[in-house]
Design a protein around this nucleic acid. Structure first.
Lengths: 108, 108
DNA sequence: TAAATACATTGCAATATTACGATATATAAT
DNA sequence: ATTATATATCGTAATATTGCAATGTATTTA
């Protein structure tokens, strides 16, 4: 098959999985980290920084943008991408809820 | 291509991405949540609970086990899977480090 | 020992992801 | 207007993931 059976799961479970999938590539982690550090972020910077082709980086940026994890403004010729604070907080909350649900000592 | 160029990234970035990938499926989220709640976990329970085929669940369990997120003990005929507390803490730390690096107000 | 139970593994089809060259688009500078 | 720069999109090849039937393996019960 190859297609995830999302209808079997709750929307929270699907949402968590989607967010995790967005983070499930080192290039996207690197993009996010770079965006956090440099406060502003341009595609052409990342091509130098990461060593992936421009088309590839553009594709990774789009995945993050589709999930609204980042947002982009046109800045003359280039783009200014940055993290969406509201979404970032939402994601953090979802992840924390998952991690904090575990009492740390229920192993069999 | 289809193959991730891990050599371009730091081991921390690759580790974070691997962990995120393990969580990037609603069935694996559901498995983990079920494991947290029931304190002990058996494959045949999950087949009832999740509505996926036994082989599929076994495969998801293996992915989580390969990353040492869960561990399994043989309990007679059945298996007792549970979360690995050390790894869980490690993952939580990695994720928190990522989330906390963002000052929440650096949007352009 | 034979049958039943509980997983694990194999093999395969359908679909998704990753990567990139080529090309399109849009703004800036000359 | 033309050219340069920056990014997006398209098309495609290589690989990975998802899901499951069929089968294998190991333990328990009859």
């Amino acid at each position: 098959m190859g297609i995830t059976k999302k209808e079997l799961f709750t929307s929270e479970q699907n949402e968590l999985a989607s967010v995790a999938k967005a983070l499930a590539h080192p290039a996207r982690i690197a993009i996010i980290q770079h965006m956090i550090q440099s406060k502003t972020c341009i595609n052409s910077d990342l091509v130098q920084e990461l060593g992936l082709a421009q088309a590839t980086i553009s594709q990774h940026l789009r995945e993050l943008k589709d999930l609204q994890i980042i947002q982009g403004n046109i800045e003359g010729v280039s783009m200014c991408y940055c993290i969406n604070p509201e979404k970032w907080n939402e994601i953090r909350g979802l992840m924390n809820a998952l991690f904090d649900a575990y009492p740390l000592s229920n192993c069999c």
